[in-house]
Design a protein around this nucleic acid. Structure first.
Lengths: 253, 253
DNA sequence: CGTTGCGTTGAGACATTTCAAAATGTGTGG
DNA sequence: CCACACATTTTGAAATGTCTCAACGCAACG
C-alpha cells in the first residue's frame, strides 16, 4: 500500500500528487498540463460540519471538487422546507448546474469536516479553450449528471421505499469502492432525515426499511455505520439498471 | 405578422431563415457563422407519429433539434415498462445526454408528425472548437437541463397529483408561449397515459385531476385540447418556483 | 356495426405519511 | 465523569392519497 485513501491530506497537495487525480478533473489532462490546472485551483481551509460552501443565490464563480469529507446540495421548496438535491463524495465535482445562470441554484453545505478544491469558472473556461480534452471531460461530466438525474427521476416515480433505499445503498457502496474504500461496510455521512429527504420518503419510513432490511439479513446497521450482508439480494431489489459494470460487487469466485 | 409559427415549413429551410433560430442552437452564432452550422445540419424527411428518431442503445452520433411536431424520450424500466423522460417541442434540443457514452441512453419517438434537424456530433464538436460562443451555449443548454431535471425531481418527491399536473400544464403553457403560440389554449401532444407516466401518476389519477380542475374552473379540456381558465390559481398550485420570469401569464392590467 | 384504443368513473386495497411517544444518542457545562 | 438538555432514531396506530381492478362511454375505423 503506497497510499491510504482515508489518510488526512495536507491542504496544499498538488493535483499531480493527489490520490484522487485519476477520478477528478485532472484525468482529462496530460501530466505536464496538470500543473496549469493546479495553478488556478484554490485550496481553502477545511469546512466544518454545517458550514456552507455557497448559498442558493450567491454569485456563481467557481466549481468545486470534494477532496475529503462530504457535501450536500439543497434548495428550498415553495413551502420553505429544504429539498436535498445531491450528496458529493471525494473527487466528485459540484457547482456545474449554476453554469448558465449568474447565481448558484442550490446551496452547498458540509455534512462533516470537508476539504475542497475550488476552481474559478472563468479560468476553467480559459483552460478549456486551450485543452479540448478538458472541455470534453466537462461535457461528459454534465452529460453523466443528466443521466444520473434521470435514474433518480425513475427511482422517484416508479420505485417503492425498499427499492429506493436499496438503490441508494448500492449506489453509495459503488462510489466508495471506486475511491478505494470498502463497498461492504461504510459510514453514512447523512442522517436518516437527509436520506429520506433526498429519496422522497418520510424519516420514519427510512427507519422502518432499515430495520426490515436488518431482520431479513440484507444489511446490518448501527447508527450511521452500515454493512451490506447480502449484496445480491440488495442489488436485485435496487434493480439491475442502476448498476453500471464496475458497481458489481464480487459474488462469484 | 410576418411569420406564422405554426405554418408548415419546407424541409430545406436554412437556419438563417428558420423562425426558430432565436430559440435554437444558432442563437450562439453570428449571422455569417450560422451558415457554417447550416452546412453540417441534416434535414431528413418528416417522422410520422410513432416513428423513432433513435433507439436506446443505438450508436450515439448526433444531437437533434425539433423543427415542428413533438418528440418524447423514454427508457425501459427493470420490469420492461416504458418510463418517459422528456417531451420536446419545436426548437428544443435532444440527444445531449448520450454525449459521454457511445450509445443513446433513451429512445426518442415522434408523438405526431415531426420535422427534425440533425446535427452530427463530431462536426458540432469541431464547430465548437472554432466558436467559443457555441461551446458555451451547449454548456448552458446542459446546465439548464440539469436544473430542469432537479425541478422535476422536486415535483416527483414532494408534490401531490394536483400540483404535478398544474406544474406540467403551466410549464407547457410557458413553452408554447415562448414559441409564439397561445399559452392559454393549446393542444397536448401526449395522451393521458403518457402524461401520467412522465409525472409518476396512474392514468386514472390524471383523468380524475383533469375533471376536478374543470369542476373548479381552473381549466377546460376536451380530449387533448386544453384551455387555462384560471392561470393565477393554477400557478399557485404549481408553486412559484417552477415559473421563471418569462413564464408569468399576464394577470394585471 | 362490431372492434379497438383511449378516457372516465367508482369502490376497495395498499403503501406511505402523519401524529404521538418512547428510546437512544450526542454534546455541554458543572 | 456525570447530569442534563436536546437532537435523532425507532416504534406504534390511525389517517390519507394514490393505485389497482373493473366497468362503462365514446370516437375513430375498417
Amino acid at each position: 500500500m503506497t497510499s491510504k485513501p482515508n489518510a488526512r491530506q495536507p491542504s496544499h497537495v498538488a493535483c499531480r500528487d493527489c490520490s484522487l487525480s485519476s477520478l477528478c478533473l485532472p484525468l482529462a489532462l496530460s501530466i505536464k498540463d496538470i500543473d496549469q490546472l493546479d495553478n488556478i485551483i484554490k485550496r481553502g481551509r477545511p469546512l466544518k460540519k454545517g458550514e456552507h460552501l455557497f448559498l442558493e443565490g450567491d454569485q456563481f464563480s467557481s466549481v468545486f471538487a470534494v477532496r475529503s469529507g462530504a457535501i450536500k446540495t439543497y434548495t428550498a421548496t415553495n413551502e420553505g422546507e429544504e429539498q436535498i438535491t445531491g450528496f458529493y463524495l471525494p473527487s466528485e465535482i459540484l457547482g456545474l448546474s449554476g453554469m448558465d445562470t449568474d447565481t448558484y441554484p442550490v446551496s452547498a453545505q458540509a455534512m462533516e469536516t470537508t476539504m475542497i478544491c475550488e476552481i474559478p469558472f472563468e479560468l476553467l473556461e480559459m483552460l478549456s479553450d486551450q485543452f479540448p480534452e478538458l472541455r470534453r471531460h466537462l461535457m461528459r461530466l454534465m452529460s453523466k449528471r443528466i443521466r444520473e438525474d434521470q435514474q433518480m427521476m425513475m427511482l422517484l416515480s416508479k420505485k417503492n421505499a425498499d427499492e429506493r433505499i436499496a438503490t441508494f445503498l448500492i449506489n453509495l457502496a459503488s462510489r466508495f469502492r471506486r475511491r478505494g474504500f470498502s463497498s461492504q461496510s461504510f459510514r453514512l455521512s447523512m442522517s436518516r432525515n437527509e436520506m429520506g429527504n433526498y429519496l422522497g420518503l418520510a424519516v420514519e419510513t427510512v427507519s422502518r426499511v432499515f430495520t426490515r432490511f436488518q431482520k431479513n439479513g440484507l444489511i446490518s446497521a448501527v447508527g450511521k455505520e452500515v454493512e451490506i450482508r447480502n449484496s445480491v439480494e440488495l442489488c436485485a431489489l435496487a434493480g439491475g439498471k442502476t448498476l453500471d459494470p464496475n458497481q458489481i460487487l464480487v459474488t462469484s469466485a
